[in-house]
Amino acid sequence: MKEIHKINLLYDFYGSLLTERQQKFIELYYSDDLSLGEIAEQFEVTRQAVHDTLKRSEQTLENYEKKLGLVTKFNKEYNSLEEIITVIDNYPREKAPEALNKVKKLVREMLDSR
């Protein structure tokens, strides 16, 4: 997963746990694509301060994921749903009962992981 997508996904799950300043810096840098210098100018701080805040924020998001694993679980469920669609699409009509059993198994696995 690309770093930008990874941080954005982590931010979607855990962003509200960051300070307001950390949230704003992450949003400006990763979503609005502002440079460190542009953010620094807007907040009247140094580029180094912006960089440090971003790195600390990223580490905090990573730590939340290590402890809670919500993004990992989300990705696993997403992949299972993609597999369900593939199973449905690839099974011929005459093998529909097999496909349905496979789908039931995948859905059951998703439900049991909660």
Score class of each variant (00 low, 15 high):
Glu44Cys: 11
Phe43Leu: 15
Val45Ser: 03
Tyr30Gln: 07
Ser31Phe: 15
Asp32Asn: 12
Glu27Arg: 08
Asp32Ser: 13
Gln22Cys: 05
Ala40Gly: 13
Arg47Tyr: 08
Ala49Glu: 08
Tyr30Leu: 13
Arg47Asp: 15
Leu28Asp: 06
Leu28Ala: 04
Gln48Gly: 05
Gln42Arg: 14
Gln48Leu: 08
Leu28Glu: 09
Ala49Phe: 11
Ala40His: 08
Gln23Asp: 04
Tyr29Gly: 00
Asp33Ala: 13
Ala40Met: 09
Asp33Met: 13
Gln48Val: 08
Ala40Glu: 09
Glu44Leu: 14
Leu18Gly: 01
Asp33His: 14
Glu41Asn: 13
Leu18Trp: 06
His51Cys: 07
Leu17Phe: 09
Thr46Trp: 03
Leu36Ala: 07
Ser35Trp: 07
Glu27Gln: 10
Arg21Gln: 12
Leu28Arg: 10
Ile26Asp: 01
Glu44Ala: 14
Ala40Thr: 12
Leu36Tyr: 15
Ser31Gln: 14
Ser35Gln: 04
Arg47Glu: 14
Ala40Phe: 08
Phe25Ile: 15
Ser35Phe: 11
Leu17Cys: 10
Leu18Met: 08
Glu38Ala: 10
Tyr29Ser: 00
Asp33Ser: 13
Gln22Gly: 06
Gly37His: 05
Phe43Glu: 12
Val50Tyr: 03
Leu17Ile: 00
Ile39Asn: 00
Thr46Gln: 05
Tyr30Ala: 11
Phe25Tyr: 11
Leu18Tyr: 04
Arg47Trp: 01
Asp32Thr: 10
Glu38His: 05
Phe43Val: 09
Val45Tyr: 06
Tyr30Thr: 09
Leu28Phe: 06
Leu34Cys: 06
Gln48Cys: 02
Glu44Pro: 00
Ile39Asp: 03
Arg21Asn: 12
Thr19Gln: 10
Phe25Pro: 02
Leu18His: 08
Ile39Tyr: 03
Leu36Arg: 06
Asp33Phe: 14
Gln23Gly: 07
Ser31Asn: 12
Thr46Asp: 11
Gln48Glu: 12
Phe25Gly: 03
Arg47Met: 00
Ala49Trp: 00
Ala40Asp: 07
Thr19Asn: 03
Leu36Asp: 05
Leu17Asn: 11
Ser16Val: 08
Leu36Phe: 14
Thr19Leu: 08
Ile26Cys: 04
His51Asn: 13
Glu41Arg: 14
Lys24Ile: 06
Val45Arg: 08
Ile26Val: 15
Val45Leu: 13
Ser31Cys: 05
Thr46Tyr: 04
Val50Leu: 09
Leu34Ser: 04
Ala40Lys: 07
Asp32Leu: 12
Gln23Asn: 06
Val50Pro: 02
Gln23Ile: 05
Arg21Phe: 12
Leu34Pro: 01
Asp32Tyr: 10
Ser16Pro: 00
Gly37Trp: 01
Lys24Tyr: 04
Gln23Val: 00
Glu38Leu: 00
Gly37Met: 07
Gln48Phe: 09
Phe25Cys: 05
Asp32Gln: 14
Arg21Lys: 14
Glu44Lys: 15
Ser16Tyr: 09
Arg21Leu: 13
Val50Gln: 00
Glu41Gln: 15
Gly37Phe: 00
Glu38Gln: 15
Gly37Glu: 13
Ser16Arg: 12
Thr19Glu: 09
Asp32Phe: 11
Glu38Thr: 01
Leu28Thr: 02
Asp33Cys: 12
Glu38Ile: 02
Thr19Asp: 11
Leu36Val: 02
Glu20Ser: 11
Leu34Asp: 01
Leu28Asn: 03
Gln23Ser: 07
Phe43Ala: 03
Gln23Met: 08
Leu17Met: 11
Arg47Ser: 08
